[in-house]
Design a protein around this nucleic acid. Structure first.
Lengths: 155, 155
DNA sequence: AGAAGGGCGAAATAAAATTTCACGAAAAAT
DNA sequence: ATTTTTCGTGAAATTTTATTTCGCCCTTCT
């Protein structure tokens, strides 16, 4: 895990559609080395996956809901039970367990308000353990790049 | 934009590392058709990009901050000015403009608390227009798959 | 100093992507 | 109803790319 790996990761989390050759050039290594290193990063679990980022607007799924959830009983197993259900729901794009304020923050990606209502009743209404729900809605996703800021991967 | 396209998108937002041939098989079309359609989806802007999802834990960037921001002056141009700064910051992974409650919700991905403090002073402290900040911290990202739920892309 | 291990790049090989082409189905026009 | 056009499709050829193999160099340990 050296500076070259960091440069590779920086490139790949910006654009994973680069060919191996193009990637090798940008990182100043040979294609063979590039391939070896990328494979190593995948095997190590540092690269978890490669995904396509789609346009919510063009797909009619342009409503993002940010939901803060407080549970009633906060025993570890009750939290895990909810988390399992949330993670399994296809409207749930992100699920964070937070330490101050609410217990969870969810990001839901849905088509419209009816779709949000459906998801909400699936996830919150049927769970007697949900004490409090606070939701915000966004129709404008100004930034979404699932990147991680890496230490000093200059160039 | 038919059922085949939806199947392609469903596959690609789960795993964009599939080869064109493998993708063609899963969607039951020939490689040539598959390539054409994917290219069309890219040109149409429906596929915005392909990115690698990295493991925050393994990279020592495991702190996610969810930040709700209220601005003082909410004229459109003041909101846009802040948005531009937020989007440009590398710690900002997501930026949503919301309609009820706060004005923005940001997702910051940082290494640790000092890194959060640094980002906060860059983004919030130096901006006299930020009235209120409410932040939650997550050390457990239970789900993160930047997918959009697509209508009826069965099979 | 000598041996062993690991990482590197050049070149050869294998695999995949991409283009080209001709066919057939559906829609539009006559 | 029939012709014409348009559009999408898959097979095959071609080009590009990925992947393996090999020998070399540098580092490390004895």
């Amino acid at each position: 895990m050296d500076a070259t790996d960091l440069r590779l990761l920086a490139q790949l989390q910006l654009d994973a559609s680069l060919t191996n050759q193009a990637l090798a050039e940008r990182v100043h290594i040979s294609p063979a080395t590039c391939l070896r290193r990328v494979k190593r990063l995948i095997d190590a679990g540092i690269i978890e996956s490669r995904v396509a980022i789609l346009s919510p607007e063009k797909l009619g799924a342009g409503l993002t809901a940010i939901v803060e959830l407080t549970l009633d009983q906060q025993a570890a197993e009750r939290l895990s039970a909810f988390e399992t259900r949330a993670v399994a729901d296809s409207a749930v794009q992100q699920c964070y367990r937070v330490s101050s304020g609410p217990d969870f923050v969810l990001i839901l990606q849905v088509a419209d308000m009816p779709a949000y209502q459906a998801a909400a009743s699936r996830l919150f209404a049927t769970d007697a353990n949900v004490r409090n729900v606070r939701a915000f809605f966004s129709v404008h996703r100004a930034k979404f790049s699932p990147h991680i800021s890496l230490p000093a991967a200059e160039q």
